[in-house]
């Protein structure tokens, strides 16, 4: 009886929280399909309007969102992939291979992530200029790998430490090499952890603005940079800004939706519980 009451209260609280979180999202979604005169109306109009896709057309035509989207997908997708390929064996080494001061090394690796972006963005800019990489996808991929890797190693290490060691030892007795142990045993067992880590890495790079702003101008710029162009000195194009924001949000929803089974399990165990 008491537990039913308790779970009902929790459920009610969850609904309230979700509502609070979703109101701004709903506002952005609605704004993205409102005609400009309704958006700028002195009396707010929430639902009573004829929806339009004009702002979506505008972000693609005027703000070249198509190219920015492609840039975002390429830089974020490739950097996440590289991060995961390097992070898994690195995390395995730190978690399992009896390295001298393994825990200290894990912390040292994580501490690389503590550096405020603003401190290193100018040196990055100088280096990129010197290497003629400004405004390319490559420069952002390199930076996102450098910034995503320490965090990914740290989170994965936590997941790997939670896996039973016996199973790897059974694998060694079955004649598997280290690489086979990682790919045939660890990867399937750590799939939830790997999914969660990949999502964290992806989300960080996907939302990243500072490096993208400094290191790209036009050809290589990603969605957050393109979005910012809807705001100029005199105007905020609320419709275009909202349409761009919705476009930025959609892939995230898709990724989380596809991996939700793993995410739920991954968050329930491992380092990020």
């Amino acid at each position: 009886m008491r537990s039913t009451m308790y779970s009902r209260m929790l459920f009610g609280l969850a609904i309230v929280l979700v509502f609070i979180w979703l109101v701004p999202v709903m506002w952005v979604v609605l704004t993205s399909v409102k005609p400009t005169n309704i958006i700028n109306s002195a009396v707010p109009i929430f639902f009573d309007f004829a929806p339009t896709l004009d702002h979506y057309v505008e972000v693609f035509e005027r703000f070249r969102f198509g190219r920015s989207m492609l840039n975002s997908f390429v830089t974020v997708g490739v950097s996440t992939l590289i991060v995961m390929i390097i992070a898994l064996p690195a995390a395995y080494a730190v978690a399992r291979m009896n390295l001298m001061h393994g825990d200290t090394w894990a912390l040292v690796i994580l501490s690389l992530r503590f550096m405020p972006g603003m401190v290193i963005v100018l040196p990055y800019f100088k280096i990129a200029t010197f290497l003629n990489l400004i405004d390319t996808q490559i420069v952002l991929i390199v930076v996102y790998v450098a910034f995503g890797l320490p965090f990914a190693v740290w989170i994965l290490r936590g997941f790997l430490l939670d896996l039973p060691k016996d199973i790897e030892e059974a694998g060694r007795l079955d004649g598997l090499s280290w690489i086979q142990i990682i790919f045939r045993l660890i990867m399937p067992m750590a799939a939830p952890g790997i999914a969660v880590t990949a999502i964290f890495t992806f989300v960080f790079s996907w939302n990243e603005f500072l490096f993208a702003l400094f290191l790209t101008l036009d050809k290589g710029s990603t969605m957050p940079v393109a979005l910012q162009k809807t705001i100029d000195l005199y105007n905020v194009l609320w419709g275009s800004l909202s349409a761009g924001a919705v476009l930025q949000l959609l892939p995230m929803i898709l990724v989380v939706f596809l991996l939700q089974k793993h995410i739920a399990r991954g968050l329930a165990l491992g380092a990020v519980k």
Binding site: P164, D166, I167, E169, A170, L173, G175, P188, M189
Partner: peptide, 20 residues
């Protein structure tokens, strides 16, 4: 010699079966 090449088989306390 690596564990896999010792021609031995081990049964673990936790069984250590591959869960997947």
């Amino acid at each position: 010699v690596d564990p896999g090449d010792r021609d031995i088989a081990m049964v673990f306390q936790s069984y250590a079966l591959y869960p997947h």
